[in-house]
Computed example of a mutant assay.
Amino acid sequence: MKGDHHMILRVIAKCLIPLILIYAFYVQFHGEVGPGGAFQAGVIIAVALILYALVFGLTATMRAVPPWFTRALAAVGVLIYAGVGFWALLSGGDYLEYQALFGEPPGEHHGQHAGIIIIEIGVLCAVSGAMTTIFYALAGRVAEIRDEDW
C-alpha cells in the first residue's frame, strides 16, 4: 500500500469498525424497548462501511461489499416488510396487523413480538442497503472540476 503515513488511521479504523457494527446490532435488537431501532441501526451499519471507504478507499469497499449486494439488500428489506403485511392480510387481518400473523386470540401478544422483530429486520436491510447504495453513487461520481482547479 502506498503511504505509510496512514498506518495509524488504518489500525484505528480496523478497531472501530467492529465496534460500530456491534453497536448497530445493539440498537437494532434493543430498539423495541429503548430509543433507536431498525432505521438507526441501518444508518449505523452504513456509517461503518463509509468509514471503511474513507480509510481504505472506495474500490476496496466495493470489493468487500459489492454494489449489487447493497441494491439487493435494500430490495430484500422492502420485500420482508411488505411480506409481513401480506402475511397478515392472508391470515385474515389488516395489513401489518401482527395479531393476525399466527391466528392468536385477542389476549395473546406472541404475533406482535414476532411481527415487530421481522419488520425491524426488513427495515434494517432496506436502510443499510439504500444508504450504502446512495454513498456508492455519490462517492463514485467523477468530479466535474479537478481538485487542482480550486
Rank of each mutant, 00 (worst) to 15 (best):
L101T: 09
A53Q: 07
I80S: 02
I44Y: 09
A53E: 09
G37F: 06
C15L: 11
A74R: 13
Q99E: 13
E97W: 06
G92P: 13
T59N: 13
F56A: 04
K14M: 05
I20L: 05
A100Q: 08
L51P: 07
A24P: 01
A88D: 08
A100L: 12
R10M: 05
G103W: 09
F86N: 08
A48N: 04
L16I: 07
L90S: 10
A41Y: 08
A88T: 14
L51Q: 06
F39V: 10
F86L: 13
G34V: 00
A64P: 01
F102C: 03
F39D: 06
V47P: 01
I22D: 01
Y26K: 13
A38P: 06
Q40L: 06
R63P: 01
L51K: 06
I20P: 02
E32R: 07
P18C: 04
L90Y: 15
P67K: 11
Y26P: 00
L9F: 00
T61S: 15
E32I: 08
G57V: 05
G92H: 11
R63T: 13
H30F: 15
V76W: 08
L89M: 14
G31H: 01
L90E: 14
Y26N: 08
A46D: 00
Y26C: 02
P66T: 07
A75H: 07
G34N: 01
Y23L: 15
L96F: 11
V33L: 10
G83Y: 14
Y95H: 03
P106T: 12
P106H: 09
G77E: 10
G107C: 09
L58R: 13
G93L: 09
E32V: 10
Y95A: 04
I8L: 09
L79F: 11
Y98Q: 05
I22L: 10
F86K: 14
H5T: 07
F25M: 11
V11I: 12
Q99P: 02
L19K: 02
F69H: 10
H30I: 01
Y26M: 07
W87P: 03
A72N: 09
F86T: 14
Q99M: 09
V47N: 03
T59M: 04
G34M: 10
A60F: 06
W68N: 13
L21K: 01
P106V: 08
I22P: 00
L51S: 04
T61H: 05
H6P: 00
A53C: 11
G93F: 13
L58A: 07
Y81F: 15
F39A: 08
P105E: 15
I12M: 07
L19P: 00
G31M: 06
T59C: 05
F86Y: 15
I8N: 01
I17Y: 02
I80W: 11
G107P: 09
V47T: 15
F56D: 02
D4W: 01
L101V: 08
G37W: 09
A100D: 05
G93S: 08
G42P: 11
G85M: 13
W87F: 14
G36M: 01
G37E: 02
G107V: 12
Y98P: 08
P18M: 01
M7H: 02
K14T: 04
V43E: 00
T70S: 14
M62Y: 03
A72K: 15
L21D: 02
L19W: 00
V84E: 07
W87G: 06
M7Q: 01
G93P: 11
P18E: 01
V76P: 10
E97V: 04
I12R: 00
G93H: 11
G77V: 10
L49D: 12
A100K: 06
T70Y: 04
Q40G: 00
G31N: 07
L49I: 12
